[in-house]
């Protein structure tokens, strides 16, 4: 079974969200998602300072097997992206919740956090996927 840390929030489309508690979040893809994709080889990230709305396609992660869109579950401004992924996309395979993070957002609507699911709900989503 994949690793699903209890301190994070999730989406049904396999993104994780870490609420930093100061109106910003970190976003990445789950360990389950990277395991389905296999070795990642290219990551396309949004521009820093760009505005995104919940549901927007904001990144593309491409593995030896398939290209997959990443959707932002929250609206706000991109305040940082993981530049290291350009040369070492395998960070996502090795550490999906740490060094393999994708981007940081400054939220425009904190209420959207309520739409995210918790670790136990995500575990059910991931289990159905098998």
């Amino acid at each position: 079974m994949s690793n699903v840390p209890a301190n994070l929030k999730y989406t049904k489309s396999h993104e994780w969200i870490q609420d930093m508690g100061d109106g910003t979040v970190n976003i990445g893809i789950t360990d389950h998602a990277q395991s389905l994709l296999g070795d990642l080889v290219f990551i396309e990230l949004p521009e820093v300072d760009s505005e995104v709305s919940a549901g927007d396609e904001c990144a593309v992660v491409e593995s030896v097997k398939a290209a997959s869109d990443v959707f932002t579950p929250l609206s706000g401004t991109v305040i940082g992206v993981n530049e290291a992924l350009a040369d070492t996309p395998e960070l996502i395979n090795k550490d999906a919740y740490g060094d393999g993070w994708l981007m940081k957002l400054k939220l425009s609507d904190n209420n959207e956090l309520k739409d995210l699911i918790d670790a136990s709900a995500y575990e059910e989503v991931a289990a159905e996927d098998h």
């Binding site: 296999g38 070795d39 030896v64 395998e90």
Partner: peptide, 8 residues
Amino acid sequence: PLHYGSQI
């Protein structure tokens, strides 16, 4: 076997 962890 498709891979044993990392095909790359």
